[in-house]
Computed example of a mutant assay.
Amino acid sequence: MRRAVVICPGRGTYNKPDLGSLMRLNPDKTELFQRFDAIRRAGGQDTVTELDGAATYSVARHTRGDTAAALIYAASYADFLSLKDIDVLAVTGNSMGWYTTLACAGALSAEQGFELVNTMGQMMQESLIGGQIVYPITDDTWQPDTGRRAEVMQLVARIASRADHSLALSIDLGGLLVLAGNDAGLAAFTEQAEPQGQFPLRLPNHAAFHTALQAPVALAAQNRFDPTFFAQPKRPMIDGRGAIWWPHATDTEALHRYTLGHQVTTPYDFAKAISCAAREFAPDVFIVLGPGTTLGGAVAQSLIKAGWLGMRSKQDFQTRQSETTLLTAMGRPDQRPLVTGNSPPADAIRPL
């Protein structure tokens, strides 16, 4: 049995190719999806099966916080339940993926996790404070460029010092930085940052997650969810600081404060979480739950940044990956069977 760290993806991972994937990839999870549908229906929202079963994918509809969060959680949690012959050593996630982590690790039930994700998605969408931009800080070999990172953060600081400009680090993805702020701050960065292909890239329907701008959302969430909502995890969890929450040793009030306070209003260090997972648990494989495949590169770049197994470049990672599967993305039809024991239906396969 392979030993694994499971990684839960965040916003931006359910895209056009993923439409219809809930039932195609997890046909045995109908009852689970019905339970999630009941929660959405009770709140007067479109159900996850209706959204996933739509005739066409709509950016305006499917990337909204109150839609995307529910779809991503449903896909990720279903994938977690589909793992076979895997010894899960720990669970971590990126941004919104922390909420899914709580459920996969057992600190929340499946329905509680869905309720939390759905509520936070609604709150974020209703306020929609600020936005996010993605910008690369590695070269083509995925080697960390500390000089470029320093220059980017200096530019961020200069912009943030201006009147009526807000800009800060939101997420460290290893090879990419996600920056967040108000429209003035984001516009200034877009104008002044050196173009890198498609970057700087503004993310649609994303708010200024993991910054002080989200303080009103954090307060509303703390008032909505009581500390008793959280339980002891059954598996170790690694948060956005690289801190580990251990079974039988977790202060659930502290978990409440972190999840609905610190995690909402301060930067999320995904690269550090992956580094911690590698060094503290030394798994045989890292498993990225679906939907989509967009987080795989960030995991690889974070492992390179950490120097895990002596890897220093993209070529090093590819060599390791060809020798023994170090990273498995369940959104890839060629890799999913490696951790589920089942090949996906033919109509679920999509181009890589």
Rank of each mutant, 00 (worst) to 15 (best):
A168C: 08
F80G: 07
G121K: 10
R279E: 03
Q112V: 00
D334H: 15
M124A: 15
H256I: 10
V117L: 07
K272Q: 13
A105L: 13
F199A: 00
T294A: 15
P204A: 06
N94C: 15
P283E: 04
T324A: 14
L176Q: 03
G292F: 06
L71Q: 03
A221P: 12
K272C: 13
D87F: 13
R148Q: 06
T324Y: 12
L25F: 07
A188T: 09
T259I: 14
L83A: 09
L186D: 10
P227F: 05
S275V: 11
R158H: 10
E31R: 06
A157S: 10
Y14N: 07
G97K: 07
C276E: 01
P17D: 11
S275P: 00
Y268K: 11
M124W: 03
R24P: 05
P333Q: 11
W308T: 10
L19A: 04
A348V: 09
V88D: 01
A42T: 11
F281H: 04
S82L: 02
L116R: 11
R11W: 14
L116W: 00
G44V: 08
E323A: 00
V285K: 12
P227Q: 15
Y77Q: 09
A215Q: 12
L116E: 05
E280A: 15
L303N: 05
H210L: 13
